[in-house]
Design a protein around this nucleic acid. Structure first.
Lengths: 131, 131
DNA sequence: TATTTGTACTATTTCAACTATTACAAATAT
DNA sequence: ATATTTGTAATAGTTGAAATAGTACAAATA
């Protein structure tokens, strides 16, 4: 598994780890029950402290995205969003609105933004309705 | 002008200020050349340090969203995105992809996400093509 | 039974965010 | 002119998250 950490991005390393694992799962590069790198492996590979990886795994588990077993390792969990629809809508819509504001100030027209949106969404395996 | 600061959100206060000003402009609540609250006014109203407001204004000016004149105040600037199209596309697309990943893990289907996207975009005055 | 694995804990360092205060130059009002 | 208001700059200090360093422990595995 390949990781790319950008120390100049301002984004905390443990969040970059989380981002990339979530992204790989969403793109189908990591599948259900697949084993993730061990905490110590990944810490060695990226050359950072094991605690930072542990923090990322801890939060991913809390979000229900991976399952960890002491002694065995960390594994991709089943999809199971325990958040209510209203909470999910609120979280996603806030982000979407922030993007719309940025698009306004960058003078991006509606059609172009929709095009970029489609390009982004098509990369991931979102279910279709009733799917 | 009304401001709402959430100290528990984890988002820095100066960014919350920026968010709300950018949002108000994008929604047409603040129009070109309109005067913003003074640094000291706003600091008093929100009960935070003037430096924090100054930081927000400084960055908004750097982004070309407002214009400031010492002695006069801060004003809404003309729309003028100096960023290249490729840079704008990269910035926006990265955010859109992050949302798509989150939507995947929340098991949000394509149609629903598009619907939420439309709801978000319609709130702001994005130009139409050639507009 | 020895090793590997995730977890927990404490201590320390680093840095961004924020506060507090003072000072200054440009714009404005009188 | 001159006093006031404005954004800006600078210094110093506080707070909290992020990350490092090291040790220890219990569960799973070989």
């Amino acid at each position: 598994m390949q990781f790319r950490i950008d120390n100049a991005s301002g984004r905390p390393v443990y969040q970059q780890i989380m981002d990339q694992i979530k992204r790989d799962i969403a793109m189908g590069r990591l599948i259900k029950n697949e084993k993730l790198p061990t905490v110590r492996q990944l810490a060695g590979q990226i050359a950072i402290n094991p605690n930072t990886i542990a923090k990322a795994y801890r939060q991913l588990e809390q979000q229900g995205i991976i399952v960890t077993k002491a002694g065995a390792g960390a594994f991709v969990a089943n999809l199971d969003s325990s958040l209510s629809r209203s909470v999910r809508k609120k979280l996603i819509s806030e982000e979407l609105e922030r993007i719309a504001v940025d698009a306004y100030h960058m003078q991006i027209d509606r059609q172009t933004l929709l095009e970029w949106f489609d390009n982004a969404v098509v990369k991931f395996n979102l279910p279709s309705k009733k799917g």
